[in-house]
Simulated assay, not measured.
Amino acid sequence: MFKKDEMLIMPAVDIKGGKCVQLVQGEPGTEQVVINNPERVAKYWEDKGANTVHVIDLDGTLNGETNIETIKKILNEVNVPIQLGGGIRSIEYAENLLNLDIERLIIGTMGIKHPETITKLSEEYGADRIMISLDSKNSKVVIKGWQEEINKSATEISKEFEDYGAGSILFTNVDVEGLLNGFNIDPILELVKSVNIPIVYSGGITTIEDVEKLSKTGVKGIVIGSALYKDKIKIDDALKYQSLKGEF
């Protein structure tokens, strides 16, 4: 559940081949971080004070081979909420994950191709537990592991999914994902203004100044990956911005 005056800091635990990895723009073979035992990584972020851990099953996203056993290990290891996405291609698999007590399920390709699935899951499990993933590349939404383009922007499609019953939106700017070069604030501000449901942002967050800037946009959470693993941002410093600081 997103709180009114809080911006959640969400450390990313991306799983590939049963390991925690960080890729550049989601491209296989660009691993810059490889750590065994993702469940211990998730526990580390919990112990450091994270209130939510953001878990992505990259194998599920890229080739449909899910890391369900690793996901179960993470759920057994940590006590804070888990926000999970990657490779959710059927209602049945989504229901299985929600019944494992995943706090919030991130649905991308299936939701965009079949928006009625968002409605069904939201009605059955509650909108707070269903997040639609809008990944943007060259200002257009992309699906299937960022390989297929939809001829709409995230802002254009966001209102549709609010109407379909999504409880929140994960907005990822693929153009800057994993590059550690910062991000463009304008699409984020535009998206926040377009809907009334919470927005979580991911992509290009590199410095503590980026975290401060995002805390003023109205987003309800930010996902930080490579910058934490490469020690460009200290989790303790980032957590200081969980209370919203104002607005642009």
Rank of each mutant, 00 (worst) to 15 (best):
F2E: 00
K4R: 09
E6S: 09
M7F: 06
L8V: 06
I9N: 00
I9A: 02
M10P: 00
P11M: 02
V13I: 09
D14F: 03
I15A: 13
I15K: 12
G17E: 12
C20K: 11
Q25K: 15
G26W: 11
V33S: 00
V34D: 03
P38E: 07
E39L: 09
K43T: 07
K43E: 14
Y44Q: 13
G49L: 01
V55E: 04
I56V: 15
I56A: 14
D57H: 01
D59N: 15
L62I: 07
L62P: 00
N63S: 03
N63Q: 02
N63F: 07
E65A: 07
T66F: 03
I68H: 05
T70E: 14
K72Y: 08
K72I: 14
K73M: 08
I74C: 05
L75A: 04
E77Y: 12
V78R: 02
N79P: 00
Q83W: 02
Q83Y: 02
G85I: 05
G86H: 02
S90F: 10
E92Y: 12
L97I: 14
N99Y: 09
L100D: 06
L100N: 09
I102K: 06
L105Y: 11
I107Q: 13
T109P: 03
T109L: 09
K113C: 06
H114T: 13
T119P: 08
K120Q: 15
K120L: 15
L121R: 05
Y125N: 03
G126L: 08
D128L: 06
R129W: 04
I130W: 02
M131H: 03
M131P: 05
S136M: 14
N138C: 08
N138Y: 08
S139V: 10
V142C: 10
K144H: 08
G145H: 09
Q147R: 15
E148N: 07
K152C: 04
A154H: 06
I157Q: 01
I157D: 02
S158M: 07
E160F: 15
E162T: 04
E162L: 13
Y164P: 13
I169W: 12
I169Y: 12
F171M: 09
T172M: 08
V176P: 05
L179T: 14
L180F: 08
L180N: 10
G182D: 11
F183I: 03
P187S: 11
P187Y: 04
P187F: 07
I188K: 10
L189D: 12
E190R: 13
K193V: 10
V195C: 02
P198Q: 09
I199E: 04
I205E: 03
I205V: 15
I208F: 03
D210L: 06
D210W: 08
D210C: 04
V211Q: 01
V211G: 03
E212R: 08
K213S: 08
K216E: 00
K216L: 05
V219Y: 09
V219N: 06
K220G: 06
G221A: 14
V223C: 02
V223S: 03
V223H: 05
V223E: 07
A227I: 04
A227R: 00
A227S: 13
A227W: 00
L228D: 01
K230Y: 01
K230D: 02
D231W: 00
K232Q: 11
K232V: 01
I233G: 02
K234A: 10
K234I: 04
I235T: 04
I235R: 00
D237H: 01
K240M: 02
Q242Y: 00
G246S: 05
E247P: 00
